[in-house]
């Protein structure tokens, strides 16, 4: 198949074939990352702007490394150093960047829908690196790639996702992606952290972690933001950890060969115990590694994919 999307805004509108094609493409890029000389000329002459309105070390660095390994020129713009503080609108900021003719803008923004907003208004490609609590497609894809590498096939697996769904930027993309690939998704968290209608996205909803992870093939723990403690959603991190933290004891309920994932950054002792985070079932750093390959695939495909070779 041939897949050359203009933008990558979310998983919701991708087909199974497109998702698999992205994962296959990422697979083929993985090898580049382990070479002595980690660079291919594929995107030479392309300019890619990392436009990050929210702090993000992992995702921003991952896109930057992905672009650089493909020989694109990468420029990082972070909100603190941008004109946002001077009162410029998102549209004006984006138009100013576009006037310098980038090929792709990779954006992280606190507002849900911000990437759709940009894509409607700009001529260049837009890749969503997380818009509010809406979608974070590259994270869902790297998660899928990681699961696929361990389990061979995603179809038929049971994946448990636990934590603060209300504030998660990744969980919707994960639900869409895993559903499309044929997995059963079980979500767990305190009711205060599960927005209404969640089941309509395509998942089972549990208020008990043990029920959700029992016999799971894969467990994804979501980060609990420390600043939520003492607000209205949970009384304390201590209590959260007691009822919704993953530890050696409850992990036994999952399948013996279950893998443990986390989009990072992890809060040791809160949603995941250190022994699990460092344990033999954890694949957290593989997720990070796969992130570079997935983002290389996205940059490559948005830039033209196979068409690039014809030039």
């Amino acid at each position: 198949m041939f897949f050359n999307p203009k933008h990558i805004l979310g998983i919701k509108n991708l087909t199974v074939e497109e998702i698999n094609f992205i994962l296959d493409t990422a697979e083929s890029f993985k090898e580049v990352n382990t070479r002595q000389i980690k660079k291919v000329p594929t995107l030479r002459g392309k300019t890619i702007v990392n436009l990050f309105f929210e702090a993000s070390t992992r995702t921003r660095t991952s896109f930057e490394i992905a672009g650089k390994r493909l020989s694109a020129d990468m420029v990082n713009i972070s909100a603190s150093s941008s004109s946002v503080v001077k009162g410029e609108t998102l549209e004006d900021t984006a138009h100013n960047i576009e006037a310098m003719h980038p090929d792709i803008i990779v954006m992280r923004h606190s507002a849900s829908g911000a990437c759709d907003y940009l894509a409607e208004r700009l001529k260049c490609s837009v890749i969503n690196a997380g818009d509010g609590t809406h979608e974070h497609p590259s994270q869902a894809l790297l998660d899928a790639l990681t699961i696929r590498q361990h389990k061979g096939e995603i179809k038929g697996l049971t994946v448990a996702i636990a934590g603060d769904v209300t504030h998660s930027r990744v969980v919707r993309s994960n639900i869409y992606c895993l559903n499309k690939l044929g997995a059963k998704v079980k979500i767990a968290g305190p009711r205060t952290m599960l927005p209404p209608g969640l089941e309509k996205l395509g998942c089972e909803v549990h208020h008990n972690l043990k029920a959700a992870i029992t016999d799971a093939d894969c467990i994804m723990m979501l980060r609990i933001q420390r600043e939520r403690q003492g607000k209205t959603l949970i009384p304390s991190l201590r209590e959260y950890s007691r009822f919704f933290g993953l530890n050696d004891s409850n992990l036994q309920l999952a399948k013996e060969d279950a893998i443990v994932m986390h989009p990072g950054p992890i809060n040791r002792g809160v949603e995941i115990s250190s022994s699990v985070a460092d344990g033999k079932q954890n694949v957290i750093l593989e997720q990070v590694e796969n992130g570079v390959a997935v983002r290389m695939a996205l940059l490559y495909l948005v830039s033209g994919g196979e068409k690039l070779q014809d030039n």
Binding site: S112, G113, T133, H134, P196, L198
Partner: peptide
């Protein structure tokens, strides 16, 4: 409005 559409769009209800 809080509900399935807000949940899907990732907007606070």
């Amino acid at each position: 409005n809080e509900g399935p559409v807000a949940t899907e769009l990732g907007l606070k209800g």
